[in-house]
Design a protein around this nucleic acid. Structure first.
Lengths: 212, 212, 212, 212
DNA sequence: AATGAATGAGGATTCATTCAT
DNA sequence: AATGAATGAATCCTCATTCAT
């Protein structure tokens, strides 16, 4: 499971070395607690207990339960995007990039089931953070699609709707094949979805020497 | 907002006419309360208050807060499927059906924002109910795709993965264009998504001059 | 288990034959419910459910939960006393009567474990009824002891204290060997207690030809 | 009324001096509340109110209402046994010890009416604790009787039955003359019971050649 | 007489947050 | 910085009792 590196913005930044360590412990503990028990079941006591710190120490670094939660959601956003970006960086073209992105996403969900759950739950705990999470995704998608369209790699079409549709595909495949069950490999799933994204469902004319 | 008709199975079914009316009031109130405030913010008091009933009356018809919630989720499942099935019933082919289904879904989400929220939150309150909700969807999709493939309406491909991808598209477009903002009409969105589903992103040979 | 015959005083006496039957059913059901679950765990619903009657019917015959409970305690008093009196009636002397009474008491407790529990719990639910229960016992004991003393069957001594001591013996032996465990027969236990009551713990001179 | 010294085992033991004081206050308050109002009438609010603490503070030291109750019952067991043991320690022989024990018991019940009530009610709230309470007593009695029999201080007889009979005597005399009414002194009552225990009810031959 | 729906007071328990040390 | 005791609002649920039918 990914550690939540202390990039977060807190007005209560630690000044000493010890403080930095404590903050990190709390962050990791919070990720585990929220991920395993969900926001409402999670408790500050659970977090500090996991971190081996006293209850009150939590409030030395955070303002509230919701605040850490939001911090973690944002952190997850960066982590997910980074993970996908790394994978897709060297894709030869946009359509291949889509397939690789889905594969990366499923793998990511699989590797971070608990943290992934945090993001989903954000919808009901910190809706703005949740929307931002996906809006940033959508924005990146849109740009990618627009650029690809400019390069002639994909057919012309409304980037916005396409972006959200593509996100939906990733998220649901991530949920179904990443989190719920691992009965198919990410590559398999990504191949199937990649084909759908590339060619759609329409029957395709038999390839090759048909006319030859 | 849709009324939650008392199709639910309760071991505490009302035996009188008056009881039937009260149950219905409670069900509607619960849908409103959960939808507006979310599961955790919602309170039994809030429900009975909306229903104009006494606190204890809730427990005349339900065992617990979670139980009504589950009942509502299941109810939503039936409602959504019905709504889509009705619309798609006369589609000439599967690909058209997909487009129409998406349009129906977005419209449905738009019309039942609150109830829709209930389903999503189920993931964190009654996960099994949530999974069932989507599994039933997926199962229907799978059958539809397999049949269409048999009829040659769509290209061959793995029905399971395709089903989940298609659900993801609907859900995210429903969320984005149904619940979050209404900046595009369901028809527009469905058209864009329908095109994606039909042909994918691949550049298509310019029509027309082909034969020239 | 003993049926609670409707000897109780209720201002809500049934007037019809059907009413009499319903009352009896409720009484039996109440005895079972209270006996099995204890006063606080017992519920009116539980009683009417056992009786196969509707909830509201309970209040056709009783004023409150406590009232039935009291009625049952009194009933138990009569039953216990009757049971012991029957057994002791033909005892040749008081000391034999004590032994026989203890045996009868243990057997009674064994046969009516649940109802017996009701009496004990009365101490915390209807203390006056509880005290009355034992006071009546004590009074009978006192008279018996005084009469026996007059007949020279027992040594002179304070009847009141003796009465309570003897009741304590019965009750605890009844609890230990009647209700908690049946590892000794009532006759065995009564023999041991009878000997204690007859001769106390003091060492007795070897009988017979001691001096021979 | 006896204070409930914090000998109890709690997994929530206080770690500071202040905590120790609060726990003690709560324990005393609980004893008073349970003793005066009985288990079911007693409320956590009543306890913390008496203790001058906030409602939630109760749960800093206890897991539940039942847990404190049990702790109190066990505490009472230790207290009662200690009290009697102290008194009986220097008894010259077993029969005298019995009389002294009864006297001590009645005095104890009189001095701790409320706590005594708690033990009795345990039968219906924490039956295992109640049985343990008396089993420990019975076990001590049994050993004492067996030893005395070995020393020839008492006549031979079944120690188990005798033990429960003797406990019954103490408990009922304690209830009648300790808790219910104080119309006789403990010494008087103990003398009467002591005589019964020593010699039983059988008529005793006129002493010595008294009449000669 | 019988039914069962409706009532609402009552209470245990949880837990985020504050604060004194 | 760290600690852990103290706080008290908030809520679910139970159930005896009443009442309209």
């Amino acid at each position: 499971m990914a550690k939540a590196t202390a990039t977060l913005v807190t007005d209560k930044a630690p000044r000493t070395e010890r403080g930095k360590r404590t903050l990190q412990k709390l962050l990791d503990a919070a990720a585990a607690e929220f991920g395993e028990r969900g926001y409402h079941e999670a408790s500050i006591h659970g977090i500090t207990h996991r971190a081996g710190a006293a209850l009150g120490t939590f409030y030395t670094y955070f303002d509230s339960k919701e605040q850490v939660f939001r911090a973690l959601v944002e952190h997850m956003g960066r982590l997910t995007r980074q993970s996908i970006a790394d994978r897709v960086a060297h894709a030869p073209d946009r359509i291949t990039a889509e397939r690789m992105g889905i594969e990366a996403f499923i793998e990511f969900a699989r590797a971070h089931k608990n943290l992934y759950r945090i993001v989903m739950e954000a919808q009901f705990v910190a809706e703005d953070a949740y929307r931002d999470y996906y809006r940033i995704f959508a924005s990146a998608y849109r740009q990618g699609l627009t650029a690809a369209e400019g390069r002639g790699e994909i057919s012309p079409g409304p980037a916005e709707e396409r972006a959200w549709a593509l996100i939906g595909i990733s998220v649901f495949l991530g949920m179904r094949y990443g989190v719920w069950a691992e009965d198919k490999t990410p590559a398999e799933v990504a191949a199937a979805a990649g084909d759908l994204i590339a060619h759609g469902l329409s029957p395709r004319p038999a390839r090759g020497g048909e006319g030859a």
